[in-house]
Write a protein that binds this DNA or RNA. Sequence first.
RNA 1: GCCCCCGUAGCUCAGUGGACAGAGCAGGAGCCUUCUAAGCUCUUGGCCGAGGGUUCGAAUCCUUCCGGGGGCGCCA
Length: 591
Amino acid sequence: MRTVSILSELSEEFGAAFVALGLDASDGEVAVSQRPELAQYQCNGALGAAKRAGRNPRELAEAVIAGLPDSSRFSDLSVAGPGFINITLADEVLASYVETIRTGDGVGVMPREAPARMIIDYGGPNVAKELHVGHLRPAVIGESLKRIMRALGNEVIGDVHLGDWGSPQGQLIAELEDRQPDLPYFDAANVGPYPVEPPVAMDDFNEMYPTASNRAATDEEFKERARQATAELQKRRPGYLALWQHFRDVSIDAIKAVYDELGVSFDLWHGESTIAELLDPLIERVLASGVARISEGAVVIDVALPDDKNEIPPLLMAKSDGATLYTTWDVATIQDRVDQFDVAAMIYIVDARQSLHFEQVFRAARRAGIVGEDVLLEHAGNGTVNGADGKPLKTRDGGTPLLRSLIDDAIDRAAQRLAENDLASEYSEEERSEIAHLVGLAALKYGDLQNHRASDYIFDLDRFVSFEGRTGPYLLYSAVRMKSILRKASEQGLTPGVLAPATGEFDRNLMLALLRLPEIVSRAAEHRAPNHIALYAYELAAEFSRFYEHCRILDESDGSTQASWLGLVELCLRQVTFLLDLLVMEVPERM
RNA sequence: GCCCCCGUAGCUCAGUGGACAGAGCAGGAGCCUUCUAAGCUCUUGGCCGAGGGUUCGAAUCCUUCCGGGGGCGCCA
């Protein structure tokens, strides 16, 4: 279909009028009016252009209006204040724009940039560790961003990027050797084959992991053995490698189950180990080329630049004992992605506190010639999930809440609310449970995504699961009402039809709201900020609710008005469903 | 010490250099013989941390200060 963006069409037209006056096309940019009571759209370019051209802004604005090809399409076109151009479309024109979208098969999204292939890195879980609250934001923001980028025509590869090659692995190996020394993996003389069945389950890790990391912190002898085990694993000692493979498989099953429930998926289950064989050659190369140097026995790359206003410390490529670190892996991963996927961009949805690390890694990768300036490297950092005290969320006993339990709590709370309010009580047990599931997850995800990516936010499940106000449940409820009315209409033999000019403020406002979608999606992509979608989805749903309350669709006696309104509902449902999908939320059939 | 992020309504948070700064919640007043009230309507509430500067125009850009959070080579 021909995708429609009213703003880009108006901007083009106004731009041409500015150009005809010897000014810049960019002066013609039209935006949604900030004063809806005055106009639907506005163009402010005359102010800046007048200043540059040494002309009177109001006169210039008048000249721009006079230069437009067809003013009959506007019900109002006037200069206001110091030189704002206020624009209001004729109702026939407005309706025909919306009708174009309705009769098309899309939602009016217009890609503005050339589509590109990119990798989004938004997982970061560690092997042998359950997902916890810290994984929530990268998961939902990353998944949402992936969907947004894809909606704009980009080819996006999502990578979970497991933490699977560091010292915790060695600690676990050492811990298990203490517990079960007779396992074949620990016999250096035994080079396989090894048992197919894993010697541990996820539940074992939950106890073993903290124990091992505690011992490594307090017991020097254990720490040294763990360090050696890590080094030997990284040198691919067969028994350790086989054992590590079990750790990885068991963990991935458990991790995937949680991501699945959240609706988060990855194209690649790569990890630090994926690039293990690239490390030695990489280190040799940077040393040979002089990019790296030896400092206190370690291999470092200087990444400070002469015009830095702050001091960026050198990046550590290898420890003095020869072992590699996460900085090394991240540099090597960039090389791997360049080699394997030929991407134009790598976007990292990772805790904002890692910003210095990524700055160092990106600079090192560029300095080492691993990646050219034509490839975008971006750390789109996420904020943290905090408790009511403004500090990172903790369980009552001070531990780190598991993602699994946050999800379960949200679903339980949703089910509880349904019961309290006697909602969905006439539905089957199974359907009620399904509704609670969707509502709980929507509450959790909307609670997160309505906040800007980089902001920390206070986790308040009661507020998120509330059935009132700007919440996930409200959005689902609005969409369900749209479905319900279309179902009822269909039962009565009524079908959506051609959009007629608005009959009043409510259907007009809904049409205007529907037309805002393309720029919202573009902006969300540009800023890597799904909250723009989240807020717009709410505004659209709220606009629908007002329309729904004030325009009695099924009672409408005028057949063409009724068909037009049904068409509006149909398109609105299509758009809201699309937006909710971008927010990783799913709408039930009824609630 | 150096650097990064943040100070916006009672609370939680939005806010692409443009007109009188917004939303949700909470507070106040209304609307269900129902296209699902998980809704709608009206309303109270702000020197956008403070001071300078740039600009025709600043919550937004620059700068200083105050307050909060975070980071800073052999963990990830």
